[in-house]
């Protein structure tokens, strides 16, 4: 009798789990689970961070085998000496470059005094969500949250830049300045303590100011500025282009600004369709360059005050009162 009761309870529990899972699947399709997903990742983050820290410590610790033999020890010493020499050379080169860059930066500040107030920082983060999901279910969660100073609407970029397919045929020579921009993956939608939910470029609700860039035999030409909008499908659309402007298939789409501030030019994608509608408007479709499938790490672009200003701002009030 007791066995029967337990078996019934177990079947009841399993059936309950079946229907609960079904309800959760339906809730996920309707988007009701979106706020819970970062919460779950956030709840798992303390354990995950401990594991990551332990793995990093294991990597840092010296190998026992290397220190055992004298010959290996000598070999290591030689390697270290070589490395030291290389580092010294690199250090000298970096000092020279820094000096040169400082001079250049001071010149830029004279030309554009307002731009010197803002400084962009890149915060690196790993992708926590699994790859290879259907696009409709795909949500990008990265392991950087409020604890790393991440706030909503910051741009998320991938390290791989635009490939310039121009060679010597287009008068490109070694030593020419090459503009490379990181690919925009999306924007921070929700920031939890340790993780953040990313709104991909093509998801509905994504908006960014973009500029069209055209490659011609004479070189690159910056075109019209518009607003890139996610459609919820594979492609994005660009709106706000005046009917008097020219748009062509193959035009590159780059950022006009980063959240209203002039910053690095980031790559969004390429125009795949440009039709002039009867109403006198452009219907421009853009294929985003960012692919979420094999994404392992991203960078989050943070806008902050220039370091000197920020440090000054952080000084204690009493210290500031003493200074004349």
């Amino acid at each position: 009798m007791r066995a029967d009761q337990i078996r019934q309870r177990m079947w009841l529990g399993a059936t309950g789990m079946f229907f609960l899972s079904l309800m959760v699947a339906v809730a996920d399709r309707t988007g009701l689970l979106n706020p819970f997903r970062p919460m779950i990742h956030d709840a798992l983050s303390p354990g995950r961070l401990i594991v990551v820290a332990m793995t990093a410590r294991e990597k840092m610790s010296p190998q026992a085998d290397v220190s055992s033999g004298q010959s290996l020890h000598d070999e290591q010493l030689k390697k270290n000496e070589l490395l030291l020499r290389q580092l010294m050379i690199e250090n000298a080169r970096l000092r020279r470059d820094l000096k040169r860059e400082k001079t250049a930066a001071s010149l830029v500040q004279m030309i554009e005094p307002l731009s010197s107030l803002a400084q962009f920082r890149l915060i690196e983060a790993s992708v926590v969500s699994t790859g290879g999901m259907p696009n409709s279910l795909r949500e990008l969660i990265v392991d950087a949250g409020k604890s790393a100073g991440i706030t909503r609407s910051e741009l998320v970029i991938a390290g791989n830049g635009i490939m310039v397919d121009a060679g010597t045929d287009h008068s490109v020579n070694s030593g020419d300045r090459v503009l490379t921009g990181a690919v925009v993956v999306g924007r921070i939608d929700k920031a939890a303590r340790w993780v953040s939910l990313v709104q991909p470029v093509n998801s509905a609700g994504f908006k960014a100011q973009v500029t069209l860039l055209r490659r011609t035999p004479d070189g690159l030409h910056f075109g019209v500025t518009g607003t890139l909008e996610g459609t919820g499908e594979e492609e994005c659309s660009v709106t706000g282009i005046p009917h008097t402007e020219a748009v062509a298939v193959g035009d590159e789409v780059i950022s006009a600004d980063v959240n209203g501030v002039k910053g690095p030019q980031l790559y969004f994608g390429r125009v795949t369709r440009a039709e002039f509608l009867a109403g006198g408007q452009w219907d421009v479709r853009v294929q985003p360059a960012a692919s979420l499938n094999d994404l392992e790490s991203v960078g989050i672009l943070r806008l902050g005050l220039e370091r000197a200003i920020a440090e000054k701002d952080q000084k204690p009030a009493s210290e500031r009162r003493r200074t004349p």
Binding site: I6, M10, T15, M17, I40, H41, M133, P134, E139
Partner: peptide
Amino acid sequence: LLDWIARPSFLPLCPMLAPMLAVICLAPS
């Protein structure tokens, strides 16, 4: 189910059916 919410796939077949399979193995005769 929590694992499926954190890392979603198309269908939560595992939380749906794995408990039932477990009952077949575990339920007392």
